[in-house]
Design a binder for these strands. Sequence first.
DNA 1: TGTTATAGTATACAAAAAGATACTAAGGGG
DNA 2: CCCCTTAGTATCTTTTTGTATACTATAACA
Lengths: 112, 112
Amino acid sequence: MDKQPELCRVDDALNILVGKWKPIILLTLLQQGTKRFSELKRSVPGITQKMLTNQLRELEKEDIITRKVYAQVPPKVEYSITEYGKSLEPILVAMHDWGTAHNLHKKNIISN
Amino acid sequence: MDKQPELCRVDDALNILVGKWKPIILLTLLQQGTKRFSELKRSVPGITQKMLTNQLRELEKEDIITRKVYAQVPPKVEYSITEYGKSLEPILVAMHDWGTAHNLHKKNIISN
DNA sequence: TGTTATAGTATACAAAAAGATACTAAGGGG
DNA sequence: CCCCTTAGTATCTTTTTGTATACTATAACA
């Protein structure tokens, strides 16, 4: 019996989800479907172009999203969640649920 | 209707879970119960004392674990998961399950 | 002809996270 | 008296992340 082989698996998911902007990007694409670059930028207030490009590239590399370039001027590029990317939804939901409860917990602590 | 109020909730969970060592520390305490500092250090190969202290302090601050000091020499300090900390388990499980599937997915991509 | 739009890249810099290493207190054992 | 143990601190360096800002191509529009 080996020691905690499952631990590294958690890190796999975590590595994909961390980054200041990835969860919000993923949730936007999951909830609102395909978006072009500029729409995403508007959906994620405060993000710089470099960071958005950056995070999208990483998600693309992991096969979580796809990138579709249209040969137009001005450029048009669309991003969508892959089927595989959709499999992350339960994690995001679990985190969202927990985060909501966490907020109540913090309030209870303060009120003591 | 407000725009994606749930996004920040995900970050709450993420902020508690990220850090190179937190998941493995939490899983160890969840699965194996109370541990003292040196035992944890052995359970998390590669971690430095500084990092372990560091991560434990942060988890304690969030009320995810408790720290119990025994007035002994040499010192003895025990760490345990709180009831509240146990509420993170579904997230860790979701991430573990996903991570396992992710591994298979990667293998499939490579075999194409 | 000059301006606007889109989806970037390039560069420099700042801040945060992680790592390496040395040091400490205090009692027990030899 | 010196060394061992445990659970840390303190300091410094490296690596990783994130920010700010300027720049580009090309067509359409006024």
